[in-house]
Amino acid sequence: MSESSKQVKWVEEPELGFWEATFVPAIIQGLKTTLNHVISHKAVTEEYPEVKPDLPLHYRGVHRLNRDEKDRVKCVACMLCATACPARCITIEAAPAPKDWPDRDKFPKSFVLDELRCIYCGMCEEACPVDAIELTHIYDLTGENRDDLMYDREKLLGVYDETKDNPRDPVRTKRGKLGAAADFQGLPTLGPATDVAGNDRSARTGTSGVIAGSGAPAKENRS
């Protein structure tokens, strides 16, 4: 967006007075500032390995695959995350769900997420209709080779086991039981998966079962 002329404030170079021309008062003033910092020193540095950073709640780190209440993988292999992924880092191989899983048709036979290709945009999390994939606060991801960072289904479920009790990474779904992903009518409304400002358009869409923000649902008149 280019600024209009009204937004640009043109400033004249201020005139130098006597005290500015002699340098000395300005230097003394500056010395006072720096000296104050030395005397009442309060470092803002986080000493990382000893002190862990206090990450914001919407931080997007390593993914996890959530489990449902029966400890099965929640994912229904709908491919929405793989489709939404701009980095194409998710490879899902779907298979018909086992006979004793009556609540879904498919499940992921293999689910591989390339953490090296991922750009941590969180689109998979937004796209997932059953809140199976979520991004956690794990930021110090390392591996000894590339294969180490190809996260398969078991590894992603492992991340879930590791992080589900962390208050920073609550299981964000409020959908109750895993159910039909397409059943938008019967589903309760819920908050956005990630924090969204109340006046955000996505927070105000009235579609049931998808998103409800803090603001009242309002139909936006887009002409």
Partner: peptide, 8 residues
């Protein structure tokens, strides 16, 4: 320098 710049 660190103290003046609020570092350690």
């Amino acid at each position: 320098a660190a103290w003046m710049q609020d570092r350690v």
